[in-house]
Design a binder for these strands. Structure first.
Lengths: 220, 220
DNA sequence: GTCTATAGTAAGATAGAC
DNA sequence: GTCTATCTTACTATAGAC
């Protein structure tokens, strides 16, 4: 791959007057920093994907991004910080997409909890395909120590939401319902993994549909 | 915790004649080496569990086991070797237990594929509870780089077996069947995680039974 | 097989100029 | 905010006596 290498060539537009080397206009003055973060993030994603988190070195991320170690630490505080940032990005997008799908369906007059749940699940899975590069990284399960707890706790939260969504009323929830919800959530997660590694959009879609059938069968 | 610390006190029974400091009888001469391996394994399990694989240091394993670094490398070749050994142990036990349960049920005259499958699943889950200390480590998902592939490929193998078991005849298997099998296996895995972190045997049993119900519903 | 002592190395992290 | 240069730590792995 080795994209975005030329970025470092700069040296033409800085030294306006010293410190935060921005351009003249106020609104654009963070553009440079954003580009830096972006370059760091995308290089980190590549390297983590290629070598696995543990074997990835700061050095290689620096090389591929063309950004310096100093900047890396300035923005993300280190290797783990990059990983977490990547994770937050993706899961924010997934959550937003799912939430939006559910509320859109609601606005469409849909009231059946299971149908709403499936709408959310389908949106989530679609993001897994669209952003499969990132999804593969996390669904694969390796990360900084403590990251599995991070993922785990987000999953718990999601399970709780799904449990609530599925029972319509907001009440107790026995063990059976909890386990069911856990199972549903797990299935979606695993499906996401499978979809992120699918070889074509057609295959991904096929899996999504099959999984939705299973989810319906389970939730009913 | 800090058990098995006194082991190192020895120095009384060695120096029989130099090399493999064994006792006189032939059959017992590996007892010492076995004890060494055992101490290393159990210390490693503790440390991995406490700190997570990545943050675990050889040093602490050596401390807690009372065994030297040299011996550690002699037997396991390093940190990753210990992890793998622990994993092989547990999964061998799980597989054996499941296989045995299935064949016992068969011998009992049971022929229904789903019932047989459930028997295996139940046995697997029981081991997750009995050996929850170890199970927690692996089901948590952190390990040496490449270990998730190791787990993954074992899972694939298991899925294939289950697919075969479930369809009775050994034939094709369409996408729908593959996905179903994947889902079943995933659910069992996740259930194992939940069981390994359950707080009492009663809770574990409750989860096992609920999961079996769900599996039956799914497999049918 | 088991131990002690030591080597080697790599990687994450910091300091401070611009 | 960005960069270069450097540090320091800590951990794996080996050598070689018993």
């Amino acid at each position: 791959m080795r994209t975005s290498r030329a970025r470092r060539a700069g040296g033409a537009d800085e030294t306006e007057n010293g410190a935060a080397g921005g351009t003249v206009t106020g609104g654009r003055q963070w553009a440079r920093a954003d580009a830096t973060r972006q370059a760091l993030l995308s290089a980190a994603l590549e390297v983590f994907a290629d070598r696995g988190y543990a074997d990835a070195g700061i050095a290689e991320i620096v090389e591929r991004s063309g950004i310096s170690v100093g900047s890396l630490y300035h923005h993300y505080g280190g290797k783990a910080g990059l990983y977490v940032a990547l994770w937050e990005d993706l899961s924010a997008e997934q959550e937003a997409s799912a939430a939006q799908a559910v509320s859109a369906a609601r606005k469409d007059g849909e009231a059946d909890p299971i149908t709403l749940f499936i709408a959310g699940a389908r949106a989530y899975l679609r993001v897994c395909w669209e952003r499969r590069d990132a999804a593969r990284l996390f669904l694969g399960g390796e990360g900084p120590s403590g990251s599995s707890l991070m993922r785990r706790s987000r999953a718990q939260h999601w399970i709780a939401q799904n449990t609530k969504l599925l029972r319509g009323t907001g009440e107790p929830a026995g063990r059976a319902e909890q386990v069911l919800s856990l199972v549903l959530t797990t299935v979606i997660g695993e499906a996401g993994r499978e979809i992120a590694t699918a070889e074509s959009e057609a295959e991904a879609t096929e899996i999504i549909e099959e999984v939705c059938r299973i989810l319906i069968r389970l939730a009913r």
